[in-house]
Design a protein around this nucleic acid. Structure first.
Lengths: 215, 215
DNA sequence: ACGCCTTGTTGGCATAGCGTCAACAACGCC
DNA sequence: GGCGTTGTTGACGCTATGCCAACAAGGCGT
């Protein structure tokens, strides 16, 4: 048996705010990943974190805020593709490499990405939509960079919008691949590459032409 | 003052189950369209319908079921594009007409479509994902019909999957158009048409070729 | 080493929302 | 006109959230 007058482990361990915050977020993520918003109670999260329920409100205010924080953290990792920007390479090659790198990243973060694709929220919340939109926005930025149209997107919002449409296809396609297994990686690659090249070749020029003098 | 022995308007009006059901659903739709699930209370829905709260549970069981029923009704309208199947017409023309009809339909049901988009964007629980998937599925069926690949999709699941990817782009693109106004209708039309034709021309053949002997 | 002060942490309270159920009443029928 | 059917209600129990005052762990000055 242990020394009865020894270490005296305190029943409450006091941690710094940031550390505690992260610990709670970690447990919240794990639970929200598994079950929809409404079915996860604050009590449950607190128990998982070994913490009292009131502490969640202390750190995050409301349950929804905790949820949003957790979601934002989940989305923080996957949707940022690697640069793969090779100076002087031809656009098709850059696209090819970039798609390849992106798919590789997704495959490695498979489960994370899948949950990111269909997240468990119950109900449609404007703030949540906002967070998701921000994730796509950065994806679009990267894409514009890769294809060398970053300057053009600043001048032509339509091009940005077109890329957002494209990334909608990218999401749907990777879902077919990773979640449902109805496409394989090569097929996804082919489709994304073909469509992007075609967009650059046929669609973007027309957008630039028709809306040239706008603003 | 009124005749004290006259019409005797009954304080409770008794309606047939179907009629009452529809009435409640109508109010529920209106509220769920405006605000997220968690912020709409059953009490509120009942009040809007001029009905007691318990009646909602009587007709729909749980609040979630009522919500799902309302969502299913909202989605029932838009994702079913009109046939526009003209016998003997060339595929590009059929696509053109079909897209045109689809966009027209969406424009008329603008708000409904936007909420549908937000729902699929912010994810939701498994059941709701299921409902949304069903909507996409029928959209894919229709698309296959229009482009004359209905038989091929039965034999080649990859083609179906490719169409699902495409409809992901269609959703994202129409969101840019109707929700954010960053594309106009003609641009959406152009993009959808170009990409679909390109898919049929370059991608589908390769899918058929490489996976031909499967099954 | 002792005690004070800061602040991380807790438990209980008040409130709101959901699902259930027995009682009530409107409408059809004999 | 009485009676049975059934649409409809209001209250009850339970759970979950947000709030708040009390508590205590760890640092700091003396």
């Amino acid at each position: 048996m242990t020394d009865h007058a020894a270490v005296e482990v305190p029943r409450r361990v006091r941690k710094g705010p940031d550390e505690r915050r992260e610990q709670i977020l970690k447990c919240a993520r794990a639970l929200f990943r598994e079950r929809p918003y409404g079915s996860v109670s604050n009590t449950e999260i607190a128990a998982a974190a070994g913490v009292s329920r009131g502490l969640l409100n202390h750190y995050f205010g409301t349950k929804r805020d905790l949820y949003l924080a957790a979601v934002a953290q989940m989305l923080a990792v996957p949707p940022i593709p690697v640069p793969a920007f090779v100076e002087g390479a031809m656009v098709p090659d850059r696209i090819d490499q970039s798609i390849e790198a992106w798919l590789e990243l997704l495959q490695r973060n498979r489960t994370t990405w899948i949950t990111a694709l269909d997240m468990s929220a119950s109900g449609v919340d404007a703030e949540l939509v906002e967070i998701l939109e921000e994730g796509r926005e950065s994806a679009v930025d990267h894409m514009a960079e890769v294809v060398g149209l970053a300057p053009a997107t600043r001048e032509h919002p339509e091009i940005r919008a077109a890329f957002r449409g494209y990334s909608g296809m990218a999401e749907a396609t990777t879902r077919e691949w990773l979640k449902y297994g109805r496409l394989d990686r090569d097929q996804v690659h082919l489709m994304l590459k073909e469509v992007l090249l075609h967009l650059l070749d046929r669609v973007v020029p027309q957008f630039v032409q028709s809306g040239a003098g706008s603003g």
